[in-house]
């Protein structure tokens, strides 16, 4: 028994195999507000595929039998947003500030997964570790492509590069004039 115990491998996070299918594009937000599961007095049904996707994600980020020392890095301190598109189940994980009584998020406090119909992890993007194509692409003026169109097959080469006009700048210096607050935040403030 001792032998078995001594040889048992410590569960490691991020150890699940990933197909890394770059053709899988994470969808944008749905127009509709996400439904929060678990409200008192309301029953919900979750099909097996969705549950399996959540289990795969949770086990990969937070291996069973482990518990992070700090609250924000625990399984129960995240929100899990699920979007199904065709055969793929997308899971977006983000820090739930209220869970640990925090007012501000941490840097790199998110992750997202795409789980295929066979339960394989098609794509995994963990903040701070994996490049997120969707978060960095430049479109040429007039392109007007939707995020998913612009994202498909995008690569860092699509980023607009500049060589000129930077002489005399100091690292950390800002170039542009101050603009209105981020419209995303304004929109948030105005929503019901």
């Amino acid at each position: 028994m001792l032998m078995v115990s001594a040889c048992a491998r410590r569960p490691e996070p991020l150890s699940a195999a990933v197909v890394n299918d770059r053709s899988v594009v994470f969808p944008g937000e749905s127009e509709a507000e996400a439904i929060t599961v678990g409200q008192p007095g309301v029953s919900y049904s979750l099909d097996g595929d969705v549950l399996r996707a959540l289990v795969i994600v949770a086990n990969d980020l937070f291996p069973p039998g482990t518990r992070a020392a700090s609250c924000p890095k625990r399984m129960e301190a995240q929100t899990y947003r699920v979007v199904r598109k065709g055969d793929v189940i997308f899971v977006f994980i983000e820090e739930n500030l209220a869970a640990c009584g925090r007012r501000f998020p941490a840097m790199d406090s998110g992750a997202k997964y795409a789980i295929g119909a066979d339960g394989r992890i098609l794509r995994r993007v963990v903040d701070g570790l994996d490049e997120d194509d969707a978060n960095w692409f430049a479109v040429t003026p007039g392109d007007g492509g939707s995020p998913s169109e612009a994202d498909a097959g995008s690569s860092p080469q699509r980023v607009w590069m500049s060589d000129g006009g930077t002489e005399g700048l100091v690292p950390g210096q800002s170039l542009a004039p101050v603009v209105a607050p981020n419209p995303r935040r304004s929109a948030d403030a105005g929503s019901p």
């Binding site: 944008g28 969707a134 960095w136 479109v139 040429t140 607009w160 590069m161 930077t166 700048l169």
Partner: peptide, 22 residues
């Protein structure tokens, strides 16, 4: 030090931003 990339961020949604050349 060299400034290699400069663009303006617009938000596509809460979790995705796009970099517009400037």
């Amino acid at each position: 030090w060299k400034l290699d990339v400069h663009g303006i961020v617009t938000w596509i949604n809460e979790r995705t931003y796009r970099l517009e050349p400037q």
